[in-house]
Design a binder for these strands. Sequence first.
RNA 1: GCGGAUAUGAUCUAGGGGUUAUGAUAGUGGCUUCCCAAGCCACUUGCUCGGGUUCAAAUCCCGGUAUCCGCACCA
Length: 550
Amino acid sequence: MPLDVYDKIMMLAKRRGFIYPSFEIYGGSAGFYDYGPLGSRLKQNIENLWRNYYLLQDNCVEINTPTITLYEVLKASGHVDEFTDITVDCKKCKQSYKVEEIIEKNISIEDAFNNDKVKCPTCSKNLKDPYPVNLMFSTKIGIEQSRDAFLRPETAQGIFTNFHLLYRYGREKLPFGVIQVGKGYRNEVSPRQGIIRLREFSMAEAEIFFDPKDKTHPNFEIVKDEKLYLFDNEKEMKISLEKSVKTGEINNQALAYYMYLTQKFLMSAGVDPKKFRFRKHASDELAHYAQECWDAELYSERFGWIECVGIADRSAYDLSSHINSSKTDMYAMRKYDKPKIMKVKKIVPKMGVLGPLFKDKAGKIQTILENMKVNDIKKIYVKINDETLEIPKDCYNVVEFEEKQIGEKFIPHVIEPSYGIDRILYCILEHNYDEIKKKGEEYRILKLNAHISPIKVGVLPLVSDSRLIKIAREIDKNLRDAGIATYYDEGGTIGRRYARMDEIGTPFCITIDHDSIENNSVTIRDRDTTKQERKKIENIIKFIRDKISK
RNA sequence: GCGGAUAUGAUCUAGGGGUUAUGAUAGUGGCUUCCCAAGCCACUUGCUCGGGUUCAAAUCCCGGUAUCCGCACCA
């Protein structure tokens, strides 16, 4: 079988220090890859470009939270339950099934399997021995009295669990966004496809909190005429943000805006526009927390369309779960223009009567009564420890108070753009990989965008003449002092050195030749055109800076 | 997790029960002083791991691991 792009990229990636299989000397482990020297830089550049969009353009704030996450957090978020599938294998035809999909409803799993009520949908053999599959890595915190924990399957929960503090930090204004860039972990059943499906992966997530009554975005006006590449599972279309929201294709402005931001980021990172689209999730593929979700998909010649970004409307799901589980006040306040004076009826218990009547339960009854919402009261029942008690009328007064309300409390909704950095990185490599023939030989060029590429400038003395080397070394140092990543190379022939730089995606090569000694000038070679321009040495830094800025 | 295929220097690959394992690429040092992988010399790096069969295993057999393909999984 001839090598396809994937093979070629993985070969190049290993040879040139982008990506290595992890623990290879001990046989390796599926789903884990290391980033080598160039890969690490490339990844950092992609992450920092991403930060640019969210921290600067969208004015989000960044936080960092632990990758080890307490059981309670993921229980509340639904991951403990939703992330576990009860699975069963057929010993005859070797198929695996999710139990909930093949057993009759209203039957418990124990009953079904103990009484041979489950048959294999393929070969009708009785199925046995269901087992739970949880896709989170579990661990324990502490030695003796340990607490259960998991490696986080997403970075988002770290943001939700800090919502009340971050809301205050943002001076209680909505919308506001929080981002986190870091590792996530999923114990995949059978990871494959290189860095497309990892067990430990890098993600960049943003949680932008909105008033559910107002999912407009302040920047929407500016970009509303820009076009999005949408795919509705049938046909692809190019449609403006404004129109897509108007027709209901996209549920709200905020969602559309972050889709646009995503599209812009990916293009800037070097994604081929022809290999990009947004695909809407069908209702049966939505995650347990999502109301509407659009995936940014990138096309790979090997794998087809790959989900690289998910932009979900998670509504109030997470915050309300954490409010319920932790009893923390994570509400936001929608302020009225003028404070409202509300007439509120409240129950004022008469403890003098209640006390003797209910004795030790009186205290609890008091709290319940005081917090009760009051409309028209006829009889009041209170439930304490499964016992329902009727509270006689002479135990309380209903009093009307005037209450000043400055606004109403609500749970913010959240729009979540979530990016798989490793997948994006792979697709960028694939989309920018180019191969030409030079003198009958394969010649590889990685046409990475200048602001993404790990090395910006190759510094090459044409020949190893000590005068040229001296100038070259000085230029190299000055560039690095100016914060520009360089690669100094005086070995081998000049053509070979250009080839090396082309293969790792270095956009520019500065060559110091004999004229450099005479007139303080060098040539700057452009990777994609191979054209050379002669520049004064003192102008190099500015020239390169202009070229590599976004 | 199931089934199939594969596994030889950093990369690609030839071969194969018996002395020192083939070639190329890459890399290093030197010569060349050279603008797109030029040439010459020298050098560096290897049979996936464990067990078995055998006088002898990189080669045959079994198992593990990894990779690829198909099925299932991918909130």
